[in-house]
């Protein structure tokens, strides 16, 4: 259901934020306003402000976050791994848009403070770390593996033409960072029942795979007012995707396939 206001325990305590000033002699100071939640404290979430000297900081938002964690405040929690946009761990909301901290340059954020929140409308484990259990369960629900009925050829793999491979090239590039699903208002209001753009893009990837033989079952599983049709083509997903993928188009294609098989 649409619920614009946060539950009481999730509301940010505006009086509680801490401020960490830049070291003296800092020349190019930029303030990072970061969402903090400590489950052990019993306190509500707060916004801490960290003033960094950008002359002493790497270019990406992830560099700034790690500088804070290493040099200013070791209690800051975040996920990160590859720092080059292929693992999807450091997905978060930066200046109002979901993206990967490792591929977003601080300079590209314009002037002013940088606001960093966890992925929207998700349960927060700690600080910028959200609980992605439901998101992963939705991915598993679309059965993201090759399903075949015919026996495999005895002497070779199940081959694809170059064109057939190209159809799954783009959707296979999804890194499951959850930027798209958590940018989608429809997913916010119905995350328990709507699969969301990431899972549906993955569903599309297997639907159009020339080797897969479970097309009917895959479409049956999606023909549901909530799982698929809560997509209202808002397009936040495609705007947010850090890999320049287009879940909205994939969902549109699934809707077309469902319409086409009616007659």
């Amino acid at each position: 259901m649409v619920q614009l206001a946060l539950p009481p325990n999730a509301r940010i305590d505006k009086s509680a934020g801490k401020h960490y000033p830049a070291p003296s002699g800092a020349r190019r100071v930029r303030t990072f306003r970061i969402y903090r939640f400590d489950p052990a404290s019993g306190q509500r979430p707060r916004i801490d402000r960290y003033d960094l000297d950008m002359e002493q900081c790497g270019p990406m938002v992830l560099d700034a976050l790690l500088k804070i964690k290493n040099e200013v405040d070791a209690t800051l929690s975040l996920r990160r791994s590859c720092r080059e946009g292929i693992c999807g761990s450091c997905a978060m909301n930066i200046n109002g848009v979901n993206t990967l901290a490792c591929t977003r340059a601080c300079e590209d954020l314009g002037g002013g403070d940088v606001s960093i929140y966890p992925l929207p409308h998700m349960p927060v484990v700690k600080d910028l770390v959200t609980d992605l259990t439901t998101f992963y369960a939705q991915y598993a629900a679309i059965k993201p593996w090759l399903q075949t009925r015919t026996p495999a050829p005895p002497d070779r793999e199940r081959l694809q033409s170059k064109h057939e491979q190209q159809r799954i090239d783009r959707p296979s590039a999804c890194i499951l960072c959850a930027c798209c699903s958590t940018s989608c208002p429809s997913y916010w209001w119905n995350s328990e029942r709507y699969l969301g753009p990431a899972a549906l893009l993955a569903a599309y990837r297997w639907i159009v795979d020339s080797r897969d033989e479970a097309l009917g079952e895959r479409l049956d599983a999606l023909e549901d007012p909530f799982r698929l049709y809560r997509c209202h083509t808002i397009m936040n997903c495609a705007e947010a995707c850090p890999k320049d993928l287009n879940p909205a188009r994939a969902i549109g294609a699934i809707k077309q396939m469902l319409a086409d098989r009616q007659h």
Binding site: N9, G42, G96, L119, H121, M122, V125, T182
Partner: peptide, 23 residues
């Protein structure tokens, strides 16, 4: 252990043409 709070959504997401035309 406190119940996990819901992260901010509507109030922090940058308003864009996408949501404007949809609503």
């Amino acid at each position: 252990m406190a119940e996990r709070p819901l992260s901010p959504h509507f109030t922090v997401y940058r308003w864009a043409y996408t949501m404007t035309l949809s609503i």
